[in-house]
C-alpha cells in the first residue's frame, strides 16, 4: 500500500521534474562528440526559468487558440505520461484501451500546436505545421503497428500489463523489429535528427522550431517544457523494449529507471552526433521504413 502511494508520488514527481534533464544530456553528449565543453547539464532548467520571468510579445493576428495551444499540449502530454508504466512499476492510471488514449492524446496536442502555428498567419510557421501533420500521418501509423506487435505478444490491450509482461525471454525477432521501429518513431515524433534539427530555424529544416517562431517569454518556456516532457514519455515507452530489466528492490528499480533514461538521452545524443539530417523529401521514406520494421514484426507473428 505504502509502496503504491510512493510509486504514484515518484511517478508524478519524475514526470514533472525530470524532462528538461534529457535535452541537457543530449546537448552534453553532442558537445563531447564535437570536442566542446558544452552547456551545463541543467541548462534547459535555467532556460525555462529565465523564459518564465520574461515578458512576451504576441502576434496581432492571433486568437485564443495561439495562447491555449501550449497549455493543451502540455496537459495532454502530462496525462499521457500518467498512462505509461515507468520501469517495472504500474502506471497511476490504467484501464482497457488506454494505449489508444495514449496515442490520441498526442494527436490532440498536435491538433492544437499546428492550429496555433497557422493562427499567426506566418508562412514559415504554416510550412512547419504542414510538415508536422504530414509526417505524423506516417509516424502515427508506424507507432500503432509497433503497439500492435506488443498487444499480440502480451495478449493485453492496456499499457501497464502490456509493457510489464515478460515480452521476450530471450528477445524474439518481433520485439527487436518493434524496438527498432519505435525508436525511429521516437526520433521523428520528437523532431530530432535525422528528421529535424532542433538547433536551427533554417527553412530547410523547419518543422517544430518553425512552428514556434512567434512564441516568446513564458509561452516559449511552456513549449520547451512540453517538448521535453514528450521526449521523456516516449523514451520511457521505448525503454521497456530496449532494457526490460528489473532488480526487484523498490528504490533500486527507480534508480535504475533514472539511469536508463539518462542513458537513453545519451544514445539519442550519439545518434544526433553521428548522423546527418535527412533531406526533407527523404523523411517519409524513413518513416515508412519504421512502419515496415514494425510491420515485419507483425507479420512474423502470423502463424
Amino acid at each position: 500500500m505504502l509502496n503504491d502511494v510512493m510509486t504514484i508520488a515518484i511517478h508524478i514527481g519524475l514526470l514533472l521534474f525530470m524532462p528538461p534533464l534529457l535535452p541537457g544530456v543530449i546537448n552534453r553528449t553532442k558537445a563531447v562528440f564535437a570536442g566542446r565543453k558544452g552547456p551545463p547539464l541543467l541548462q534547459p532548467y535555467f532556460d525555462i526559468c529565465k523564459l518564465f520571468h520574461k515578458g512576451m510579445v504576441i502576434s496581432e493576428s492571433t486568437t485564443w487558440v495561439f495562447l491555449a495551444a501550449p497549455v493543451v499540449a502540455l496537459a495532454a502530454t502530462l496525462l499521457a505520461g500518467l498512462l505509461l508504466p515507468f520501469g517495472p512499476f504500474a502506471a497511476p492510471i490504467h484501464f482497457t484501451g488506454d494505449l489508444i488514449l495514449f496515442v490520441y492524446l498526442f494527436g490532440l496536442a498536435r491538433f492544437f500546436t499546428t492550429s496555433a502555428a497557422l493562427d499567426t498567419g506566418s508562412s514559415f510557421e504554416g510550412m512547419g505545421a504542414a510538415r508536422e501533420v504530414a509526417f505524423a500521418c506516417l509516424s502515427e501509423t508506424a507507432f500503432l503497428l509497433g503497439l500492435l506487435v506488443l498487444v499480440r505478444l502480451s495478449g493485453s490491450v492496456s499499457l501497464t500489463p502490456m509493457l510489464l509482461s515478460p515480452l521476450a525471454h530471450p528477445p524474439e525477432a518481433p520485439v527487436l523489429m518493434a524496438a527498432a521501429g519505435l525508436f525511429i518513431v521516437l526520433l521523428a515524433e520528437n523532431l530530432r535528427i535525422p528528421v529535424d534539427d532542433p538547433n536551427t530555424h533554417l527553412e530547410l529544416t523547419m518543422i517544430h522550431e518553425a512552428m514556434v517562431l512567434d512564441n516568446s517569454g513564458p509561452l516559449l518556456g511552456l513549449v520547451h517544457y512540453g517538448s521535453a516532457m514528450k521526449l521523456f514519455v516516449l523514451s520511457a515507452l521505448a525503454l521497456h523494449l530496449f532494457v526490460p530489466f528489473q532488480i526487484g528492490i523498490f528504490g533500486a528499480d527507480w534508480g535504475l529507471f533514472v539511469i536508463e533514461m539518462i542513458a537513453m538521452a545519451a544514445v539519442i545524443g550519439i545518434v544526433e552526433s553521428t548522423m546527418a539530417r535527412l533531406q526533407m523529401r527523404h523523411v517519409p521514406t524513413l518513416l515508412m521504413a519504421a512502419g515496415l520494421l514494425n510491420g515485419i514484426g507483425f507479420v512474423l507473428m502470423v502463424r
Partner: peptide
C-alpha cells in the same frame, strides 16, 4: 484495421487543421 484507423485519424487531423487554419485562423 486498427492500423488503418490510426492512419485515418492522423489524416483527419491534418485535414481539419487545414480547414481551421484556412478559414478561421490567421488573417
Amino acid at each position: 484495421g486498427a492500423v488503418v484507423l490510426a492512419m485515418v485519424g492522423a489524416l483527419a487531423v491534418a485535414c481539419f487543421v487545414k480547414v481551421l487554419g484556412g478559414v478561421f485562423l490567421g488573417s
